[in-house]
Design a protein around this nucleic acid. Structure first.
Lengths: 186, 186
DNA sequence: GTCTATATTAAGATAGAC
DNA sequence: GTCTATCTTAATATAGAC
């Protein structure tokens, strides 16, 4: 095959799509090779730890995306309800109107590696903390803000499952619409 | 190895545990063989379609469990709030206080077979319908009852994800405690 | 109805050329 | 830094004895 190359960022985006569709164990290095255009040996050169290292890099990349795209919208100036609505818009795009699964859900099975769990837990805590910060700004006391943030994540994750299983984006869309009410005092 | 046998029911319970822990693609026939005590050839004798047939049989078995354990509790005589609380208790046991994943979540990845999706969608619809029937009985109009039922499933699924990722049963327990309020008019 | 044994294919992983 | 080629192991699947 002709020489190929691909940026880390594009490679991990491709990997993310595969993992969200088939799960961690459902994706082989051959699939990753075909989807990225890189031979398996090249993947090992860039990720000596093989598939597990690609999974961890994919998780780190998603974590960065949240840090760079979602969290700034939550922290931006402006009324908290507007910011929550903006966050909902960003999440709608990231999950493609509920058609894509949450990688945190998909990669968090109990059988996964401890490192995977650690990365997912850290990412989830950051997400909840960002939601909770907004809720506190809007006037909720810390404990209530934390609980509202958890509740919001619960509903987003659950609605993604329901929309996927029912093949119907409505539950996910409805949940996103509730987000400002969930995260702010009216 | 000495001759072994195992009932279909016990075999599928074992398979369920494996699938919930590792996902569909994360479980091999060798693992199923070891966990059930049956050689691979025997598994093929009982499930000629191989792993995919075992997955579908496992889903059917879970569906039966819901029909036989959860739905009767929702339909039993007595006040709707009591029935919702009883259902919460049954779900708490089924998901082992949030330590076990939902098989509907785990097996519903987009990469799965159409038959798998069909079975999961049917099971999910039955679950929502059973919740919605209780909500209607408690006085909610049909559309609101259906939405409350979907909302309840969303929160159960989402809280299972959160409890798994955070390694903390609190979100799942809190969600189950909300179930009577979610499914009935106060 | 379960077993042993084996065939076939695909997976993860590495060596060495360019 | 990517390639071709190959190794080793494990997966799915089947044949045939008991």
């Amino acid at each position: 095959m002709a020489r190929q190359t691909i940026s880390d960022s594009a490679l991990l985006d491709t990997a993310l799509d595969l993992f969200r569709t088939h799960g961690a164990e459902g994706v082989s290095l051959s699939q990753l090779s075909q989807a990225t255009g890189l031979e398996k040996a090249s993947l090992y050169y860039r990720f000596p730890g093989g598939k597990e290292e690609i999974i961890l890099a994919t998780l780190a990349s998603v974590g960065q995306w949240f840090e760079n795209q979602l969290f700034p919208a939550l922290r931006s100036p402006g009324p908290p309800r507007k910011r929550a609505a903006k966050a909902a818009e960003i999440l709608r795009a990231f999950y493609q109107d509920g058609a894509r699964s949450c990688v945190t859900d998909v990669l968090s099975l109990p059988g996964g590696s401890p490192q995977r769990h650690q990365a997912l837990q850290t990412a989830m805590e950051a997400w909840i903390a960002a939601f909770a910060a907004l809720a506190r700004e809007s006037g909720l006391p810390p404990a209530a803000a934390r609980q509202a943030a958890e509740e919001a994540v619960i509903r987003i994750e659950g609605s993604l499952v329901l929309s996927r299983v029912l093949a119907n984006p409505a539950p996910f869309h409805r949940t996103l619409k509730q987000l400002p009410d969930l995260l702010t005092t009216r």
